[in-house]
Design a protein around this nucleic acid. Structure first.
Length: 504
RNA sequence: GGCCCCAUCGUCUAACGGUUAGGACACUACCCUUUCAAGGUAGCGAUACGGGUUCGAAUCCCGUUGGGGUCACCA
């Protein structure tokens, strides 16, 4: 088995909710890998034991599984759930490895022990801030410790961290695929901690060691890492390893231009799922954040596309570098587009029902012909799966409420209702054309516009003035149910009204 | 504050030195219509600013401004 030419990875940290940014990185990393018949892996970065959250780990992997249901390319070739010979893919299980390389760096002089306590560091840092120093990194106090003293204190059991000995002069150039050469002055670099007091590595060391050992060829990650890339290059050099290609993707922002984050109240992937956003819509939407499908001959960009189509056309040249503000409104529009134009009716029926069962909306509601008819007539009327259920309670229960507007319509058509009932009761069937002919005839006989008879009827059988078309709705509900509903409203003595007033 | 990145309609974006600066979401109007949607048509709306380079600049260069990131024993 020859090594793949391209190996990409995402390295989520299990500290909280499944982040949209992780899904975004997963998309770009997997699309690029698939385009080159490469390998895409997921490595859990759980070396911060204080922020570790066991549940989060499973939720992140579940999120990837969920997105993977719409595109196989997104399914990782290796992950904590699918180990291979380059694993384990859970970073904490590799801590021994990281320590070993930290020691190698120590041996070669590329790194050194620092015995400062966190308190000391905090004080000195604060002092530097008070002095308004421009350099706020580690003051390198222990960098000049002799080898003997360092070894002696360590042997005596004094706690220490291992820090990178960054060069004090010269420059380090990062060749970023999207930005070209970015030059950093080494004097600005910090002697970053590589191995923490608790024996676990920091991201800097762990990611470089693991990326190298796992054969990662292209590090595709968020722009926030750009400024620490010189550190990463130094680590790689110290270990004598080749650099991967660096690709720092643009920001995902929330309204207001700040970094998109759950902490600021931005929805997580799970939130979108609960909202009834389809995985294909989310992926499609993320695909147009920072990247665009080449436009056709008419100059209009293709807005609806799958990850597979993205693979066909993807190039880094089409990535725009300005951050993109996440617009939930547009996501919803796209989701609606998938519902009404991309997915088949059967598919939508299945998803709406499965979603309803999962979220507790569909209790006692079968996935039968009636249900299918309701979905069909609602198709252009809901953008998210949750919205379907919110707008269709009256289809599935006799316990629907009548809102103010509907109550007024009913009162306005009070004298027509008995005739309406009689007319509908006399019909041989409730086929679309039958009820349409009958209702239009009734309106004509009464000398009123069709709306005059249909609005009160709609209000009575739906409890709202907003519904699918009258005749398809009548046909689906059926004569018996419709007549009962009309009769109930007819017999209600008191005027109806109020958001929650019952039908009786 | 030092350093780094970025900059086209409100938002997502197209343009790869020559276009009336195009499309999409949102918004407005109209059409369709039994309501609400969907759909269709039209409209509103941008090259942050200032200098260069060039016959010609959204596009290349410099500066200014603005926004973001980073400077953790977090990732």
């Amino acid at each position: 088995m020859s090594a793949p030419q391209v190996v990409t990875r995402i390295a989520p940290s299990p500290t909280g909710d499944p982040h949209v940014g992780t899904a975004y990185q997963a998309l770009f990393n997997s699309v690029f890998a698939r385009q080159h018949d490469g390998k895409f892996v997921v490595r859990l970065e759980d070396t911060d034991r204080s922020r570790y959250n066991a549940a989060s780990e499973g939720r992140i992997l579940d999120m990837l599984d969920w997105l993977g249901t719409v595109w196989d390319g997104l399914k990782p070739d290796a992950s904590p759930r699918r180990e291979d010979e380059f694993g384990p893919y859970t970073q904490s299980e590799r801590a021994g490895l990281h320590r070993q390389y930290a020691e190698q760096l120590l041996e070669s002089g590329a790194a050194y022990r620092a015995f400062d306590t966190p308190e000391e560091l905090g004080e000195r840092r604060k002092a530097a801030e008070d002095r308004k120093d421009s350099y706020l990194g580690y003051d390198r106090r222990d960098r000049t410790l002799s080898r003997e003293e360092s070894d002696g204190r360590a042997a005596a059991g004094e706690a220490f961290v291992i820090r990178l000995a960054a060069p004090l002069e010269g420059q380090t150039t990062v060749r970023d695929r999207l930005r070209g050469d970015v030059v950093f002055s080494n004097a600005e670099l910090d002697d970053k901690v590589l191995l923490k007091r608790d024996g676990f590595p920091t991201y800097h060391l762990a990611a470089m060691v693991d990326d190298h050992l796992m054969g990662v060829t292209h590090v595709i990650r968020a722009e926030e890492w750009l400024t620490s890339t010189p550190i990463h290059q130094l680590i790689l050099q110290g270990l004598g390893w080749a650099e991967p290609e660096w690709i720092h993707t643009p920001w995902l922002l929330s309204k207001g231009g700040k970094k998109y984050s759950k902490r600021r109240g931005d929805p997580s992937v799970e939130d979108f799922r609960k909202m009834g956003i389809l995985p294909e819509a989310l992926l499609n939407y993320l695909g147009m954040m920072g990247w665009s499908m080449p436009s056709g001959d008419d100059g209009a960009a293709q807005e609806v596309f799958s990850p597979a189509e993205m693979v066909e056309h993807f190039t880094w040249e089409r990535v725009s570098l300005g951050g993109s503000t996440f617009d939930v409104e547009k996501l919803r529009w796209l989701n609606g587009k998938y519902i009404r134009e991309v997915l088949s009716l059967d598919d939508v029926v299945n998803r709406v029902h499965a979603f309803g069962a999962e979220q507790g909306y569909a209790e006692g509601i079968g996935k039968n012909e009636y249900f299918r008819a309701v979905v069909a007539m609602m198709l252009p009327r809901f953008e998210t799966l949750a919205e379907f259920w919110e707008k269709t309670t009256y289809f599935f229960s006799e316990d629907y409420s009548i809102n103010d507007k509907a109550a007024k319509l009913i009162e306005g058509g009070r004298e027509l209702l008995p005739k309406l009932h009689t007319t509908l009761a006399a019909l041989p069937d409730f086929a679309h054309d039958t009820t349409e002919a009958a209702l239009r005839q009734l309106a004509e006989a009464e000398g009123v516009k069709p709306g005059k008879v249909m609005q009160p009827l709609r209000a009575a059988i739906a409890g709202t003035s907003e519904s699918p078309g009258m005749f398809e709705m009548l046909e689906a509900m059926g004569q018996g149910r419709v007549l009962e509903r009309v009769a109930r409203v007819l017999n209600a003595e008191m005027p109806l009204g109020g958001q929650d007033s019952p039908v009786y």
